[in-house]
């Protein structure tokens, strides 16, 4: 087994354990911290796929903004953190079944895809993925419409937030 495979397996295991701990931690801030660990793991996978931009953007957006906002809002609700109620309810066998079915279904779907088992092709040395990504985001033949739609959605969300927070006089 090559070294990169060992590293991949170790990080994958760590990410999965962290993801599990997000759900089963009793303390909400600990959950948020495990979430950060999980997101870091995902960022490392992006790095493995030589998608440096996504790796860094993952850290900037998910850890730098979203996870910090999570922690911030949890910090404002101190009493919620000592929650002693049971962590599972009666529906857990059904949920487990659904989760396994869904995962199996996704796996089965991927298995029918011929390139699922293929190794990622080596990237050309002079290829600049960052530049290609940037061009694809503004090219009418590629992703300009989803990109603009996402911007409109974000602007709408921002206007909504400002409206809600507006001091009525």
């Amino acid at each position: 087994m090559a070294l990169s495979q060992i590293i991949f397996l170790v990080i994958a295991a760590a990410t999965l354990v962290a993801a599990l701990l997000v759900v089963i931690s009793r303390n909400l801030v600990h959950s948020a911290l495990w979430l950060i660990a999980t997101l870091f793991g995902v960022a490392i996978f992006y790095g493995f796929l030589s998608a440096g931009f996504f790796a860094v953007a993952q850290v900037v957006i998910y850890i730098g903004a979203i996870a910090i906002l999570f922690i911030f809002s949890v910090m404002l609700t101190r009493r919620l953190m000592q929650d002693n109620s049971p962590q599972i309810n009666r529906g857990w066998p059904l949920a487990l079944l659904l989760a396994i079915l869904f995962f199996g279904g996704v796996l089965g779907m991927y298995n029918t895809w011929p390139e699922f088992a293929a190794m990622a092709p080596e990237m050309a040395a002079e290829a600049n993925p960052l530049e290609q990504l940037g061009l694809a985001l503004v090219s009418p033949n590629a992703y300009v419409l989803p990109f603009e739609l996402a911007s409109i959605l974000l602007v709408a969300a921002m206007i909504g937030a400002i409206y809600l927070a507006w001091e009525k006089k």
Partner: peptide, 24 residues
């Protein structure tokens, strides 16, 4: 790395995290 500038921003976010953890 070809995303060096963004990396600097990302690293700054981790510093913020450290301070929040200390405070909490």
């Amino acid at each position: 790395i070809n995303v060096g500038v963004l990396y600097i921003v990302a690293v700054g976010a981790i510093g913020t995290l450290g301070i929040i953890l200390a405070g909490w």
